[in-house]
Amino acid sequence: MFKFIIRRIIQTIPVLIGVSILVFSMMHLVPGDPAQIMAGESAPKEQVENIRERLGLNDPLPVQYFNYVKDAVQGDLGNSMRSGRDVTTEIGARFWVTLELAIYSTVLAVFVGLIVGVISATKRYSFADTSLMIIALFGLSMPNFWLGLMLIQWFAIGIDLPSWVPFINDTSWFKPSGWGSFAQVVLPVVTLGTASAAIIARMTRSSMLDVIDQDYIRTARAKGVKERVVIYRHALKNALIPVVTVVGLQFGGLLGGAVLTESVFAVNGMGKLIIDSIRARDFPVVQGTILVVALLFIFVNLAVDITYRYLNKRIDLD
């Protein structure tokens, strides 16, 4: 297992290099002269030249790239053009906000998705199965910004409903914006997690259906194992193997989804930072944020692979 982890870490190196090259070349792929864009369209020539010199844009590309990587490794991602503060600090606190959002959403999605998937699979073709899968289809198809807006409308602002409708009329439970308290966290997490929960539920269902028909499940029953134990011990452990992969991919997707969700709920995370920076053409911040998100994504995939290996004993560990 240890050998596998080492190998897997070594394998991420080319990916890291690829990502850094992509992020680096962003600066150069943007139409026009970055220095000109930074200085503003009406800036005098000398000022543009100054910026050019300061940013090292006159150096040959490989040298520029080398310098970029060297700084990045030391945690220096440049300075924000809007605030002037260095990018690492800009990202700093916001990183944890987004990470929290993504992790809470994943936990919610996995929890709900697994339960729904298992219920659906064990009660195949029943009313419960059909309804759950229809709901899942809705959850999957709903754009999350729209879901977010609806949730705000219903649970945080309130709509005119007869007074006997419980809960919804009490809008003090949830807050429509910000991050930190429970009341602020619930709605964005639900918004972001719904689609993933739906995907995981569908995946778990089909994976469970596959596993339930396996010979070893029959063996377990023939041993006198209780049905509940057959499902949750013998079947689920095997059914999780493909689900783990999906969870990993979903987590990456959640980081993307966070951009919209954070905007809708005015959460001050990396997603909002990216949007704001793109609007302001704050390239160093955009670059830095993308790099951090990419790193996070790679790291999560690494974790997923290791979990996968742990669950799937059939793969030779070396």
Partner: peptide, 12 residues
């Protein structure tokens, strides 16, 4: 059963 290959649970 017939299939010793698939009759045992691979994860235990």
């Amino acid at each position: 059963f017939q299939e010793p290959m698939t009759s045992l649970n691979p994860t235990f």
